[in-house]
């Protein structure tokens, strides 16, 4: 194990960590912004819209994120009309392509998590809200959605961790994330595992932090679900 080479190239990993965090956080934010309306619309079961949304979720949950990223990055670039269109300004950048693929991917999973949580709203809560005269939109905004977020918290924690790990796909389209830094280190010195071990430890540490944060959040927001004695 050449610790000295890892230390010498620490700056590679520092930029890698910041890239991984940037990609993960931005994808999750955009993903959530897409997922919430998708989940609510799915709950309404509108005739055509529902088919479209189900198709989207089926496609993005049914294919690997690596394939999606490759198709968006190398696939779309093969078409001259894409390269000549205004979208090329966006698609030209590897970062944007990764962001699009990751956001659409995590949005599909998150929408299903949220939809489940929305549907699990106890009937009594809605009846009570209607009884005090809240409009359907108010019920959604004040009762169903906040409740659904709480119920979705543990599952969403998993999705965040999967997204962090999934962001390694970025390294195949030239982005220097944590894995990219590890692979560059390996390639530079013909090492077999130093770069990968360093990357693995960094992902492990980040995962630990995310899990801890969701654990704390769960204690706070899901306190009412725990048995009374441990409260």
């Amino acid at each position: 194990m050449r610790i000295d080479l890892i230390a010498e190239n620490a700056d590679l990993f520092v930029t890698g960590i910041s890239m991984t965090l940037k990609l993960t956080v931005m994808s999750l934010a955009i993903g959530m912004a897409i997922a919430l309306p998708v989940a609510v619309l799915r709950g309404m079961r509108l005739p055509v819209v529902d088919k479209v949304l189900r198709g989207y979720i089926f496609a993005f949950r049914g294919t690997p994120m690596l394939v999606q990223t490759y198709l968006i990055y190398y696939g779309l670039a093969q078409f001259e009309f894409v390269r000549d269109s205004v979208f090329w300004a966006v698609l030209k950048s590897p970062f944007n392509c990764a962001l699009i693929a990751f956001s659409l991917n995590t949005a599909a999973y998150t929408a299903e998590i949220l939809r489940g949580a929305l549907e699990a709203t106890p009937k009594g809560e809605i009846e009570a809200a209607e009884a005090i005269g809240l409009s359907p939109l108010q019920v959604l905004r004040r009762i169903t959605i906040p409740g659904a977020f709480r119920r979705a918290l543990p599952q969403y924690g998993n999705e965040v961790i999967l997204m962090l790990h999934g962001s390694t796909v970025a390294s195949v389209i030239t982005i220097q994330d944590i894995l990219g830094a590890g692979r560059t280190l390996n390639g530079k010195y013909y090492l077999a595992y130093e770069g990968l071990v360093t990357a693995a430890l960094l992902y492990l540490a980040l995962t630990f932090l995310i899990a801890a944060a969701f654990g704390l959040g769960g204690r706070k927001w899901l306190a009412h679900l725990r048995p009374a004695a441990t409260r």
């Binding site: 670039a77 195949v172 030239t174 220097q176």
Partner: peptide, 18 residues
């Protein structure tokens, strides 16, 4: 720099103008 896994990928992006 754009860092690629293989030379084929470099040529794809060179042709695409990335």
């Amino acid at each position: 720099l754009g860092l690629y896994g293989s030379e084929e990928e470099i040529y794809l992006d060179l042709a695409a103008g990335r």
